[in-house]
Design a binder for these strands. Structure first.
Length: 232
DNA sequence: GCATTAATTGGTC
DNA sequence: GACCAATTAATGC
């Protein structure tokens, strides 16, 4: 398996893989597998490089007081992890755990730095990516500050739907109530309560870990006043 | 099938 | 709206 034939067309490396100047860099790629539940990036651990998800799902988080997790983002095929680690410091500012068995590609910091300094097209794509990430991050700050718990849960469900999609009426990712809470910025009990209400209102359906969105428009409508500019 | 973990519900501050 | 406790459902081994 090499980058030129990789199915992840959204991957930054893949986009630039056909360039001549990329070939040496591409040969330095490592690939390995992590199993579900594996905490493969530990907060505070030294940075060795950055990762791309070839196949799988990952949660990226920061741990706060009393071990409370804040999930910062979710990751799937083609996405980058650990990108804030190099350049910004020697230690990982986030942790990452596989939500299912996941295959990762990685490049060492030194290899990546060389590539970024010599291949402007690649650097530009990275810059665009950082810009999008910052936008997402700022949007999330707004949501945290201004939304009620119910709205935050709805917003989170909509985000997960956009990112992972649904098959057979259920979201393509299995998250515990606690993980939803850690992402939405509330507690698992509150998530359970909101989801129960949404079920009664026929906006979502849920059985155990499977959650499905029934009335997408209905959910969107509830948080529409918060998104006057765009539907991120 | 038992033991552990997660989901749910009710109550208090 | 968070935290705690008790009950029930689901899942791992």
């Amino acid at each position: 398996m090499d980058c030129l034939t990789c199915k992840n067309k959204n991957c930054l490396i893949n986009k630039n893989a056909s360039r001549n100047e990329m070939q040496e860099f591409l040969s330095k790629r490592h690939q390995f597998k992590v199993i579900k539940g594996q905490n493969f990036i530990i907060e505070g651990a030294p940075v060795h490089g950055l990762f791309f998800v070839f196949e799988g799902k990952v949660k990226v988080f920061k741990t706060g007081l009393n071990g409370k997790e804040q999930i910062v983002r979710f990751i799937l095929d083609g996405d980058i992890i650990g990108h804030r680690g190099f350049g910004a410091g020697e230690y990982h500012q986030i942790g990452a755990m596989a939500l299912e068995d996941t295959i990762l590609c990685s490049f060492s910091s030194a290899e990546l730095l060389t590539a970024l300094k010599t291949i402007p097209a690649l650097t530009f794509d990275f810059m665009s990516f950082y810009s999008e990430e910052l936008n997402r991050s700022e949007t999330k700050i707004k949501a945290f500050a201004q939304m009620t718990v119910r709205e935050k849960v709805i917003d989170s469900l909509l985000y997960i739907n956009r990112k992972f999609g649904q098959t057979k009426g259920y979201l393509n990712i299995q998250l515990s109530r606690k993980e939803l809470a850690d992402f939405a910025g509330t507690t698992d009990e509150q998530v359970i309560r909101v989801i129960s209400s949404l079920k009664k209102e026929k906006l979502v359906k849920a059985s155990a870990k499977k959650i499905g969105i029934v009335d997408l428009e209905g959910l969107r409508k509830e948080i529409s006043e918060h998104n006057f500019f765009l539907d991120l």
